[in-house]
Design a protein around this nucleic acid. Sequence first.
DNA 1: ATGGATATGATGCAAGTGCATCGGAAAACA
DNA 2: TGTTTTCCGATGCACTTGCATCATATCCAT
Lengths: 198, 198
Amino acid sequence: MPRQVDYEDRRRRIAEAVCTLIARSGMEAVSLRDVAAQANVSMGAVQRCFRTKEDMLLFVLEHISQRVSERANQRIATASTPQAAATLLSHTLAELALLDEGSQTQARVWLAFITHASANEKLAAVLHDTYAKLHELIAWLVRYGQNTGEIPQHLDPTREAHTLLAVADGLTVHVLAGHHSPEVALSILRRHVDHLLQ
Amino acid sequence: MPRQVDYEDRRRRIAEAVCTLIARSGMEAVSLRDVAAQANVSMGAVQRCFRTKEDMLLFVLEHISQRVSERANQRIATASTPQAAATLLSHTLAELALLDEGSQTQARVWLAFITHASANEKLAAVLHDTYAKLHELIAWLVRYGQNTGEIPQHLDPTREAHTLLAVADGLTVHVLAGHHSPEVALSILRRHVDHLLQ
DNA sequence: ATGGATATGATGCAAGTGCATCGGAAAACA
DNA sequence: TGTTTTCCGATGCACTTGCATCATATCCAT
């Protein structure tokens, strides 16, 4: 038996390297050589992990999609003290919008993939899936708010969730475009959520 | 005196070619050779028009920024029959969100530039400028709606404009990501504007 | 016509790309 | 320890890239 390697782990480490490179200088600047160097492995190792570059990028998208979803879900699941639905909603959306300083990298990567998805069916499929899940999550939170009486019953949770997600993603774009600072974006987001309540 | 060429016109034609290519297969797939072929000129002509590829891309961004702004402004200026402020607002935002089928190309290009701007200061400056102008435009429309009595006085036009622009851009992203059809996105946008009125 | 300034486009070039290949290193068994 | 099986990483290869070069074609004032 030959030496065994934890491929999943290595794949994740390579994915992180790819994200770093994409955030630093855009998706077209990602070459297999640079990825290998950034991940501190040889090019051969990268090639062994992923059959082609396209496969690699697909894995990276799935990786970050999963991370975003998981973080949002955990934020809700681990709410130790029973929080107001509005707070939960606001915090979850802020997380999804990748507003805090440390998430700027992920925001860049996310947008890069959206841009690319227009020209790549597989990437588009992953994105479609992820957005469906995120929408479901937000709609659930809105319904929860209606149950606690914080959000008016007459609102359609599905529709409101669509708007909320749009605001969140729009603000992500605005921060990336330099139109807003993360702080301002956050306050705009909060105000929109508060507006739901009255 | 040698033969004279209308450089501005040629630059615009080349810019259109670049947009077509970006929309078709992403920004990294844009090579000078492809641009020349698409614009039906020789590579030498492209090189004469733009000192470097970066210069070319910068011009393209300025070009489409201008086009978007102009279209939105004209939409307002040429409103022959005095329209309801709400209608004007809704239509203008729909235009900015590049929702209709024919604008998908521009949406892709726009997003590609936003993605790139993170790694390029000059592009970022142009984007910043454009967004500032667009925000001003929307805020003006909100104030106009307040003057006609359609929009409640107690709302802050600046803040509302920020949210409106975020919804518009968020929907652009969602359509591009395949999360919404343009029609659904439009209805979400309309509903959000209607929500302002009551 | 003619001279001269300018635009053109084919070609060259070094650098970088993704991917294929393969000799040998490394580890788990016997 | 020796064998076997997997993995690694250096190298090669065909191709594309952005940009520089330069002989040629093109046009205008004389």
